[in-house]
Structures are given as structure tokens and as C-alpha cells.
Nucleic acid binder design. Sequence first.
RNA 1: GGGCGCAUAGCUCAGUUGGUUAGAGCGCUUCUCUUACACAGAAGAGGUCAGGGGUUCGAGUCCCUUUGCGCCCACCA
Length: 913
Amino acid sequence: MTRQELPKAYDFKSTEPRIYEMWEAGGYFQPHNDPNKPDFDPDVEPFVIAIPPPNVTGELHIGHPMFISVEDLMIRYHRMKGYATLWIPGTDHAGIATQLMVERDLLRNEEVTREELGREEFVKRTWEWKKKYGGLITNQIRRLGASCDWSRERFTLDPGLSRAVREAFVRLYEKGLIYRGPRLINWSPGLKTAVSDLEVEYSEEEATLYYFKYMVVRKDGQPPVPTEDEYIPVATIRPETILGDTAVAVHPDDERYRKYIGQKVIVPILGREIPVIADDYVSMEFGTGALKITPGHDPNDYAIAQRHNLPIISILDTSAKINENGGPYMGQDRFDARKNMWADMKKAGLVIKTEPYRTTIPRSQRGGEIVEPMISTQWFVTIEPLAKVALEAVRDGRVRIVPERFEKTYFNWLENIKDWCISRQLWWGHRIPVWYCPDGHMTVAREDPTQCATCGSTEIRQDEDVLDTWFSSGLWPFSTLGWPDETPDYKYFYPTTYMETGYDILFFWVARMIMMGLEFTGQVPFNTVYLHGLVRDEIGRKISKTTGNVIDPLVLMDEYGTDALRFTMLVGSTPGNDTNVGPKKVEANRNFANKLWNAGRFVISAIDSLNKGSSTIDHGQSSIAHGRDWTLADSWIWAKLQQLIRDVERLFENFQYGEAGRQIYEFVWNDFADWYVEIAKEQLKHEKTKAQTAETLARVLDTSLRLLHPFTPFVTEEIWGHLRDALYNTSLKEITEDWPEALIIAKWPEPREPEGWEQAKIEDFTLLQDIVRSIRNLRAEKNVAPSRRIAATIAGGLSLDLLREQSRTMALLAGLNEAETSITESLNEKPKEAAALVVGAIEIYLPLSGMIDLAEERTRLEKDLREARSQIERLEKLLAGDFANKAPAALVQKEREKLEGYRKTAEKIEAQL
RNA sequence: GGGCGCAUAGCUCAGUUGGUUAGAGCGCUUCUCUUACACAGAAGAGGUCAGGGGUUCGAGUCCCUUUGCGCCCACCA
């Protein structure tokens, strides 16, 4: 395709895959994309981004484009700045999620359960599943343009990462920070595994509060009669747990029950006798003031039981059915037992009443079923010493969290953290590296042992459990770099620079990575944590399948292109704040990509036509501040660009990517496309200015592409290629230096002019814009056809030179007939039958005979005058007050000038009236 | 019970060392198929920045407070 045939609309569909392929084939995603440079150049600073690997089960959802966009922007920006950038892609085995998915597939396709299949076969099948579908998500990430180093791709169950997991486990064990024992944990009856505190979600729901009688044991040993004898009233929302009660607790100061302390009460139905104890924990005001104690199934009761040495009875099996301790209810489901038990108690005359009650119900994050606190033998990490160090790292600034407010959340969580239950009763994951012999000795080993380390028995069997997925994820920043080996990667790239993720996994992931990083490597795993917001739908609702508002990013990309989606994610969102996304926004940004494309086409065609005329361009200056006879427009757009570069750089340093994108957008569309390109069309027609115009067009486009590249890599790369192509044979050598390399290794732009150089040019051009707008406004008001060239008489006053110099541009933009336009310093007599405009101190008369309604003219001028006068009043008041004394001088001066301007305007208008 | 966030144009949102006429996109009104782009161009309407108080020469921006939403953490049966 020749450049002349570039399509009018940017064709992202065919462009994006081609570009990505080119990048990948060119090795641009590797840390040193220049083949001439050594791999681990000590003189080049590495920039490494640590990211949460997506679940291997995952289909691309709308959250992915969010983090991929941010991460890719960070990487591309630093790559362009010359860092050795590394972004390791990969996936997480996601124990529970994957196992569930494979189980579901097996049941549906082969009608077998995982138990029927057996562990070995099931794990084999899961690996097959992973091979088949694991690439889905990574291909989708490629489609998003992620410039990660695929040659270093990792999976958490890889041999290397698995080795790191073992090493980590063994080290913690040897240090005494891992222990095994029966504790009260959260049990998910659906998944039949323990889950950590973080994997339990609490939802407020309607429940029933059941009031019943705990009959006090009679001194005579006779069974108490519910209607006559003494009892302690107790309330519960889980009556079935009565089966596991081992005490009734009351407050020591409670007058109502004090007399019973030390006595015994009788467990309904079962008839066991349990003590009445006193404990401060019990609240006298709440419920009946008496609390049943079920240490086996309630964390608070568990704590009380520990204080009072109470026995602990477990009444549930792993499916949450009543076990042998539940007497007649054995084998019943927990909810059936609840009903049956209550009915039986009612018959026995032990119930008082029930009432509706709103409370928080713990549910499994994955399965959604009610989680049961249960006593179970599990593996735990003693977390407090790790947490202490991790807290310190953020407190002293070794790890910075963006936005800062999340540091507080982080502190709060780590300060109150409890031991981490790391064992899971699953099959898919890293199996716990512990072996037991028949004598019960434990062997903890890095390599699979053949015999018991204590007694030498060869009859050893490995622990059945696997580790919490987050245990391996927590090692990601260094396990992917080769830890525990001191590999070149590890030595050069660790610790990493940024960690980028959503704030929702601050605890799950970030905190654990910091803890584990510090523990195992002695260093923080990353310097900065950047937390992006969550993506919501167009009207701010949380995305969920049940709401039916799922947004498929692939559909959006098909419709509008990847760049549009990426730009949408990046612009209009701020760190840590949720952002709403819908097709409307993406469409608008598709339009922007198209705008850029067409501006690019224009620039390229300008260069092409110049080449056809075989014009020679004398191009000696690398800066346009001095020397050449640049037009105001040339200087102005260049000045705006210099400012833009500075602003974007500052914003990037402060993680304000959204604002940076917005500013580039505005520059490209409003300044470059709407104004400069329009003026360039005229300048290209003239021998004197055409070369410099082409050069300015090329330079501004070139720089804009670089600035935009981290946001919208595909379209910028594509235009860049065509631009280089066009420039290759011209004498516009300066920006051809990188040809034919891809934009991705082009340098990040630096401002080329001294700071402050821009101001005068911008002010002059702004005046020109004001005049043009004002004339256009009048034309619109009077319905003057756009094609009609009108004459004008302009009194330029102090701006006379500028206006004379810019008369052609002004005429062009405002639709004036240049030949019939006169520009003078002042007018002795104002033209008749003319509409009058005043811009600052400049008077403009447009003779529109037949269209002038004097009354209308007067009204308009009066309105302008009123505006000017109110401004004068405002500014006079301002300058008369303390402002003049206390505000910075430059600011005061600026306001004075403004006042002067309005005074002149008012003066001119008054003269016209 | 603690902690955090949000409240700015009809809608969705920007506005980060406080600087004086508050911005964008979409939507709306009027005009234009002008040779980069109708996925466009030009002009325009639309906001007492949730309410109240304070600091300051100056507050959308900082402090206090009220109201309304939302989120996170937490062991009251």
C-alpha cells in the first residue's frame, strides 16, 4: 500500500495484530531491545514492574484492560526514557477457581466427580486443561498491546516457581514461623477446604433469633420441669450449635444470673450437664444477657473456652452435616438439624420465642455458601514478626503506596493481623512439602525425601494438603527472577520498581508480597505500589454477572480498537478511585485515534508533495527559538508543545497519567489539528514557508506520537512508520535518526527550548485566536455563509505590527477577503453600515450592508460593554484591596494588565456607541 | 463499632504544591459534505463546584461541621 492510499478511517483491525507481531518479533519487549547492548548493562538503570498474574482460568474481563493499560504505559514510558525495562508476564494457578472449573467440566462432559477420578488423574486432567485453555488469557493480554517479555513467561506451578515455594516453606518452618495444629478456622463446606479470613465475605441478611431455656440442674437430682423450674434464657441464631455447647456464660456483675454461676445447666435434647461461668465478655444489655458457649464453632466462644479451660466439641463433619457428637441428629444437614432440633425443643417445652434478626452472615468468597467456623488441623504462618517488618517498610518510606491514603488501610490491617492459615484441602496447587512416617515423625524437605528424617522409615507419605494460592503469589516478584538462586536476572532486576494492582487485593497480595519479600530477600520487593481503581459500568454499578452488566473488553476492542479502550481506561480515572466505563467513552476515544490518524495523513501528504517538488530544505537548527524566520503559528505550536512536554513529564512523575493523557488529547486535537493544521494548509502554498511548515508539522507530529505512545501504542506506531517512510528520502534528516526502528525504542521527548521561552508567542497567538473567534461568532450570528469572504476594517492600536504580519492567517481563518481588509493603527471615522467588534483594544468593523440592524448592533455592544465594566469593577476592587500588597508581584501585574485591557475595550465600545 | 472515599454542566467524570472569568466527553441548539478527518469543522446554550462555618489578600482546592450515597475493616449471642 502506498502512502497515498492510506485509508480515511484508521483501520485498527488489520493494524493492531501486525504491529504487535512486529514488536514481538523485533525483540522490543526484552529489557535490552538493542542487540548491540549487553544484557545486564550496569550503566543502565533497570525499571521492573511487578504485577499480579491473572488467573489461568480467566477469560479477559473489563478489569484486565485497566491494569494492562496502566502497566504497559509505565513500561513504555520508562523504556523510552532509556531504562532496561522488564515486565514478566504469567499466570496464577488459582487453586480453588481452577479446580472448581475443571470439576465442573468433568461432571458435565464425562459425568465423573473428582473423587471418582482420583487425585493423580484429576491433577493430570487439570494440567491438560491448563495446556488447552491457559493460553487464552495470555493471548488476550497480547491483544491489549502489553509489551511484556514473553520469553520470561511464568506460571506459578512451574518447576522454578515451585522450587521457590518449597524453599520459602522450609525456611519459614526452620525458623519456627510455620506450625501445624488444630485451630478454629473458616471451613467452606461446599469446597470442603479451610479458607483464610480474607476469603470470607460478610453479608448482612435476615436471620432468626431463637430464644430458649437452659434448665438449671436441680439440687435433688430430679430432671427439671420446664414450666416450673429455674432456667437461664439464652438466644442464638444457630440452634444446632447447642449440640456443641460446653458452658453458658453470664457477666459476673449480672444480678439476674449471679446465683447460677458455678451451677450446672442441661443441654437440651442431649441432656449433658455444662457449667455456668462468668466472663466479662458477655454483654448484660444484649439479648438475654446469657451466652451459650460453643467453642468448636464460634471464634469468641473459642476464646472464652480457652480462658476457662472448657472442653471443645465439634459437631459438624466436613460437609457440615451433624457428626456423632450430635446424638439423634447425626447425619443431618446443619440446616435440617436446626429445624428438627427446634421442633424437638418445642415439644420439650424448652423454647421461649423466635424473632427476626438482621445480622452479618459469613459466606465463602468463591462458593457463596455459609462458612462454618470449625476446629481443624491446619498449617499456619506465624504472621506477627513478618507483619512488623512489613509495617516498618511502608512507615519509613522504603515502600511508597499511591495513593497515599491506602497506607492507613495497610497499617490498620497489618496491626491487627492474625496467623495465616495456609493449608487447603484441594488437589490443585503446591503440595505441602511435609512427609509423615507411621510413627508420626514429620520430615520437612526441599527435595522429596525417601525416608523419615527422624527414624529412617521408608514408609512415608506426603501431607495431603496444598498451599494457599497466595502463598506462591506472594513470592512472585522474586520467584520469577530465579530466586532462591542468585541468577543474573535476580541480581540485576531485584528489587523491582513498581507494583501495580487494584486496591481490592492490597491485603491478599501486596501486603503478603512485602512480608515475604522482606523475609526471604531482606529487601522490599518493590519501591512503589500503584493502586488503580475498579472498573464499573456506565452508570457506576459494580460489574457482576447477576446484574447482567458485564462488559466484554473483546467486544469493545472489536468495535473501537485497543487504543481506544486503553485510552479510556487511562484518561478520566485517578489512582485508587473507581471509574465508570461504557461504549460511549470508548467510541469518543476511537474518534480521537482516528483524528490522530488523519492528522498524520495530512502531515505525511504534506511531506510527500514537498518531495515531489524536489525542494531543498535548509535545516540547520535543532531549536526553533532563534534564527529562522518562523511564522507566529510555527512558533506558537512549538511553544505549546514545549509546555506540554514539561507538563506531561511532571504529571507522569506524580502518577497522574489520566491528566497527562487528557492534556495530550487537548493539544493534539485543539491546538495541532484545529489550528495549526489549518494554518499550515496556507503556509504550504507558499514557497517561502512551505519547507518550514512541513518540518514543523513533522516535528510536532513526531513528538505527539512519542507522548501518546504509552497510551495508544498501536496507532502511534503505525503513523510513526508511515511518517518515517515519508521522511526517509527528504532532507528532513533530524527526526529520521531512528529509522527504521519502531517507535517503541524512540526516545521520550525532552523540551528543546529554555523554560519560559513560550510565553510571548502564546500570548500573541491567543490574541489572534480571540479575534478570529470573535469574527466567526459574528458571522454565525448574522448567518453569513462560510464561503462568503467579507471585507474588514481593523484598528490594531498597539498590536498593529502583529496584525499586519498575521493578516493573511487571520483572513484565512476568519473568512475575510484579504484584499479588501485594511489594518490601520486607528480610525478617524468608523465605517458606516458595519458590524462592530472589540477585542481588547482592537476594533473590527465588518461592512455587512443590508444585514445590519442598528438596534441589534447596539444591544450587542451594550452587552459587551456591560461585561467589560463589570470586569473593570471587579478588578479595581481586587487591586484596591490587600491583594495588591500580599499577592505575588507577577500575579498582580497580570491582573493590572487585564484591567488595562478591559478599560481600553470599554473605551472603544463607548466611542462606538 | 472503627477507617476511607464520593457529592462539580442534563449524563459520566477531570480539575495534586490555594491564584481570582471552573474544564472535557456524551447529549442539546444553529450552521457547513471547505481538497487530513462527517469517527468531521464552526458557533452556541448550560454550573451560587451538596449545605453551613472557618483560615487566607484570594478556597472547587486547606480546616471544622451537617446531610446524602458508596466502600473497607471489626468477635456482640
